[in-house]
Write a protein that binds this DNA or RNA. Sequence first.
DNA 1: GATGAATGAGCTTTCATTCAT
DNA 2: TATGAATGAAAGCTCATTCAT
Lengths: 202, 202, 202, 202
Amino acid sequence: MGVRERRERQKEELRQEILDAAREMFFEEGYENVSMRKLAERIEYSPTTIYLHFKDKAELFNQLCDESFAKLALRLEKLQKRLSRDPLAFLREGLRAYIDFGLKHPHHYAVTFILAPTRGDDYQFQGSAGERAFSYMRGAVALCVAKGELQTADIDATAQAIWASIHGVTSLLITHKDFPFVPKNKLIEETIEMIVRGLQTR
Amino acid sequence: MGVRERRERQKEELRQEILDAAREMFFEEGYENVSMRKLAERIEYSPTTIYLHFKDKAELFNQLCDESFAKLALRLEKLQKRLSRDPLAFLREGLRAYIDFGLKHPHHYAVTFILAPTRGDDYQFQGSAGERAFSYMRGAVALCVAKGELQTADIDATAQAIWASIHGVTSLLITHKDFPFVPKNKLIEETIEMIVRGLQTR
Amino acid sequence: MGVRERRERQKEELRQEILDAAREMFFEEGYENVSMRKLAERIEYSPTTIYLHFKDKAELFNQLCDESFAKLALRLEKLQKRLSRDPLAFLREGLRAYIDFGLKHPHHYAVTFILAPTRGDDYQFQGSAGERAFSYMRGAVALCVAKGELQTADIDATAQAIWASIHGVTSLLITHKDFPFVPKNKLIEETIEMIVRGLQTR
Amino acid sequence: MGVRERRERQKEELRQEILDAAREMFFEEGYENVSMRKLAERIEYSPTTIYLHFKDKAELFNQLCDESFAKLALRLEKLQKRLSRDPLAFLREGLRAYIDFGLKHPHHYAVTFILAPTRGDDYQFQGSAGERAFSYMRGAVALCVAKGELQTADIDATAQAIWASIHGVTSLLITHKDFPFVPKNKLIEETIEMIVRGLQTR
DNA sequence: GATGAATGAGCTTTCATTCAT
DNA sequence: TATGAATGAAAGCTCATTCAT
């Protein structure tokens, strides 16, 4: 038994090692500029080994996206539990958490929300990381409206507008590194407050 | 004389043909997936011919960005002239114009504002299309504040938050084509109103 | 174990096959006229395979030079041992061995001593095949002088003059194939005797 | 008349300009590394223009060789006239003149005597620059022998040995620029004296 | 489970050359 | 006489991937 378990553990470790290296490289160099060979070199295994764990480059990339989402979703889930009594606080904190997540894991974020859709192949947003992360946001908005803390005639439209805005901040901060932004926190604060204020009064 | 002129016109036409094809392809396939060979095939010329018009692939790409900006800037400039008396209207219309531009020329937009920064090489936002387009927005905000129509303690932070938000809508609508968005205009309207409302009261 | 060894042997064999083909082709066609593709075709492997053995074309070429020298040096070394008692004989035989080597391995020789320096890149004679081969000659001259068999005021100048002369015969015989030379051996004999006689009397 | 003459003169001037630029470039970069385009750029004409003066790259190259020889031959001819009474002096001075010529016009020399034969195409030494230059040397040797100043059983063998030796010095000095040669003149002197001494006594 | 050898397809770019004007 | 536009061919090299071991 022990032998089998150890083996499986080792296999999982290598798989994770590959994923980690890939994520870093994908972000640093861009999807197309990462070759399986270079990736193999980084982890100090042969290129062939990667194929034992992932069908091809595309699958490797998709796993990366899934993994990213799992982390973000987990975070939002915890937040929701903690702030279930105060939906507006959950919304506010949720937005901040979303942006924070993006900035803390720019590799994850860029790969999943910025790079992925511009790839040529058959990427599907439906059922993807993005969709699931977004559904939390919609839930938060719905709660706020139910509790009378926000006013909107169209929950979906509102939730999407919010998502768009915070995706905007997040992606700009990640990709346009040389733009003379005001201090990061200031910009985030400003955006979130602008959003919330815009939804409170009507 | 006529001969020379005709030649120059033809040359310019081919140049434009290349640019148009390149933009489409860059957007459809991503920068790295467009080869000079494929591009040449598309326009039905030999690969070498492209090099008669553009030094290399990177230059071709950069010209594309420049061209995009020229169009957007022109549009914002006209708008500014027309609405110089009513800064809030200019801001509102400017935001809409920015988004419209992106949706009408998704290739231009994506290539310039989404793809460009994710390229590996030494892209500089400073002095780029993005920066110049953004400066119009900042100007509009400043005017509104001067006329007392918007309230903010920090014009830069506000302008950047606004830009982030509309970049968010624009880029999501362009890239996440399979997301079940509410009708496009509804989402745009919602976002702009959310922004403006959020800045009026304080 | 046996498996690994066989593999290594096979790898080494292929490597040598590439080197041999390359040497012939480089000499027949000149460095620039040999493409990796043509080379690959000759050995009936794919171009990529060559890159498994050599980093790039330049490295392949340099390995060729190194290999050439190893052979020449070995020959001179043996000669030196055998004729250590009779320096003049060693000089005479050494000169002949040098020329013989060139004519027997015209590819090696031309590539190393004729083509190499005319290449554009940063070839360094210092520490190269040529330098090491030359040092044997200088040693032989020095010995002859020490034993009073040759007279010269400047050992370096003399050694270089000798080298120049035999390099001249060798390279002419290799490159100017259509010149109506007197029989090869006659010319070699004549040159060597001319040299030795010129150094004995003074 | 005047118009036609001027035109012809101009044409000849351009032709010469092309030859001069080509010679420099061929030597600096090697035959294969000089492209018609680069050459055209250097002389600030269009590539097509070159083809008005030379059938193709090979012809341009061959003209270069011919031109080189004309210069060397002229020099040797003058020398011969001047020293017709003293064949040994003519030989000695002729050798020096040959080497000097090579060092003074390394482009000419390398292109004609070193590069040319290693090119892939159908170069013919017969009737070439080399052959004609060599014939002067043979003549000088024959004269010396006739006058009893040199002893040899085989004029051709001797003349060829001589040529080989001085070709050796010349080409080494031109191509192996980084070899720590003794001072140039010293080496030349040494070689010539070695040759002449070697032929006088027998 | 992991690897070394190998490949076909493709890349960006440059070449010598031609042709209509 | 000179040119600008255009091209087919080829260059060196890297890619994702497979297969036998």
